[in-house]
Simulated scan of single mutants.
Amino acid sequence: MNTPDFERFFNAIPANYLVLDLEWNIVAITDACLGGRRREDVVGRSQFDVFPDNPDAPDAAGTAAMRSALQRVVDERTGHAMPVTRYDVADLDGTFEERYWKPVNEPVFDSDGEVSHVIHGVEDVTGIVVSGRMPQ
């Protein structure tokens, strides 16, 4: 029997997922989350460099909310769902688009039972929020 290629399986998940180390560097990312970027331009870089706050939105707080949520996973050693969060995303040309996300975070434990990574997933709920129907 062939050994499954779990990296290929993870990359192909039809959803937006990142695996982050504890310095918030991206160690894995699904194809859906790449948004047209090349994997080699993303993996190994900080989540906050790849997905920065919108510099044209003075009240942007996406990175602050994300840092706090990721640290909470490490501190509490448990996953959680965040409230719907505005976190604008730049397209390949660097133009930011207003986006709203429903994030979830989950710890990954090493063989000693310590948190070694955090899985971060987001569902884009922009269309629902803009239409005035907040997701549950």
Rank of each mutant, 00 (worst) to 15 (best):
T3W: 10
F6C: 10
E7G: 06
E7W: 14
E7F: 10
R8C: 08
F9Y: 10
F10R: 05
F10A: 03
I13A: 13
A15G: 09
Y17G: 01
D21N: 10
D21T: 04
L22F: 11
N25S: 07
N25K: 06
V27E: 15
V27A: 06
A28F: 06
T30S: 13
A32P: 00
G36F: 09
R37N: 06
R38S: 08
R38D: 05
R39E: 09
V42E: 02
V43A: 02
V43T: 04
R45H: 14
D49T: 15
D49L: 15
D53Q: 08
N54K: 04
P55D: 11
P58A: 11
G62M: 05
T63I: 13
R67H: 15
L70G: 00
R77A: 02
G79A: 07
P83C: 09
R86S: 01
D88K: 01
V89Q: 02
A90E: 02
D93C: 08
D93E: 13
D93W: 04
T95L: 13
E106L: 14
E106G: 01
V108N: 07
D110L: 06
D112Q: 14
V115P: 03
V115T: 05
S116M: 06
H117T: 01
I119F: 08
E123C: 04
D124E: 12
V125L: 03
I128H: 02
V130A: 13
M134R: 08
P135I: 07
Q136G: 02
Q136Y: 15
